[in-house]
Design a protein around this nucleic acid. Structure first.
Lengths: 237, 237
DNA sequence: ACCTGAACACCGTTCAAGT
DNA sequence: ACCTGAACACCGTTCAAGT
């Protein structure tokens, strides 16, 4: 080849395609969360995130330590969406319930996020701001310090486990409308057990299968936790 | 080669090695649980279970539908180890606590089992016998039917999530003795936050980091749940 | 410092072929 | 019916090489 041929300029006037934006932590987390929302947790692999950014998986490691860190970053980005109320001593129980609802709402907005969150201590800025606000609500309710400190661990544990369970159900084969069929099957399975060995399971088959979708089950768990915490508040004066 | 050579008998007197025992569901579950106990949940792959049984992964699929079914079978095998008390109306709260302790004990005996159990409805015989016994305890305590039915979902959710968290911590790099160092780091991290934004996290740094190992945190959660359920028991008569 | 291709050491599952 | 080898379509992470 000629080193300088007239129809092959040495410096092309323009690259064939616009220069790609450089990779950043932010773009990686954005892309990961987009994949999470659009295609679920299984779609958030280092390889698929890289592919969506039009690069190879190795390129991500300059910005993110590993998959676990990416999971944490996604969680904290999502936690930024949570809006928890300012503490009001008169209504701490309602406020705590509202806070739990809000955390579940955000978890549900990013289906599969619970899989990234479960079992991890969330140390991101936004997750910790949520913790701080929950502590304020509990202290306003005069929940003892040690109980409040453990409660802000127990509450996300409960919510995350709930959202995790929902995401497993959601990721299963059946569409939402098949869920009703599954619940029917489950109830008749309970009903068909040996009455000598499973009398209560049979008797409560209906109660055990209600609230499989919707919020009744979650509201019950929240109520149990709140009532349990309330029982630890010492009498006034 | 000669079709019948004198030093190469057509029917060897004995196979070189004993005939392998045939694969069964039971042997597969046994092997999977052994790997789980010895090497943790990550070691329980279809391929590694097959390898431990001296065969290929495809061979397992004649006995087990898929990995998820194997997880369920492991869980139910472990559930057979659980010994829950007969219901006694006088002591339902203590009995419920004992039942929760027992379920956690078995979970801990199979580290990583929580990862197989989380998010699944356990429909195996032994898991359901545990459920039946918990229902008996709750009914003995006059917990309303719907609350009891949901409680036997909430309680394993809590225990499994707790065990899951422990298994993540356990699978992390640090050995048990490094945990203390990690907790120290965490406490000083909380202490070093911006006092204007995280006043309560700073004030409660000590309380939030106590009970990282041991049973205090679990006992607290169990107490919250039991007290919450007790608050739903209608007054006598 | 950032990015890349290629490789390493894995996964779960399927399928045609054997016995 | 049960078992197998080989393949398919994936993983997370590392590393030497480029710019």
């Amino acid at each position: 080849m000629n080193q300088s041929s007239p129809w092959q300029p040495i410096t092309p006037a323009k690259p064939a395609r616009a220069t790609r934006e450089p990779l950043t932590r932010e773009r990686i987390v954005d892309t990961a969360l987009r994949l999470l929302v659009e295609q679920g947790y299984e779609a958030v692999s280092m390889r698929k995130v890289a592919q969506a950014l039009d690069t190879g998986p190795a390129s991500l490691y300059a910005h993110v330590a590993n998959k676990k860190e990416l999971d944490q970053l996604m969680l904290d980005r999502a936690a930024a969406d949570m809006v928890l109320p300012d503490a009001d001593p008169e209504h701490w129980q309602e406020q705590l319930k509202a806070a739990m609802d809000e955390i579940l709402r955000v978890m549900r907005a990013y289906p599969g996020l619970a899989r990234a969150a479960i079992g991890q201590v969330p140390l991101g800025e936004y997750a910790m701001l949520s913790t701080e606000r929950m502590l304020a609500i509990l202290k306003a309710g005069r929940v003892p310090d040690q109980a409040a400190a453990w409660a802000v661990d127990l509450i996300p544990l409960f919510i995350t486990a709930t959202a995790f369970e929902e995401s497993v159900q959601g990721a299963a084969d059946f569409a939402p409308e098949d869920l009703a069929g599954f619940v029917d099957q489950l109830r008749s399975f309970f009903g068909s057990l040996d009455p000598a060995r499973f009398p209560l399971t049979i008797a409560l088959a209906g109660a055990m299968t209600t609230g499989a979708s919707g919020d009744d089950r979650f509201d019950f768990g929240a109520q149990v936790i709140i009532a349990g915490l309330a029982s630890m508040v010492p009498p006034q004066q």
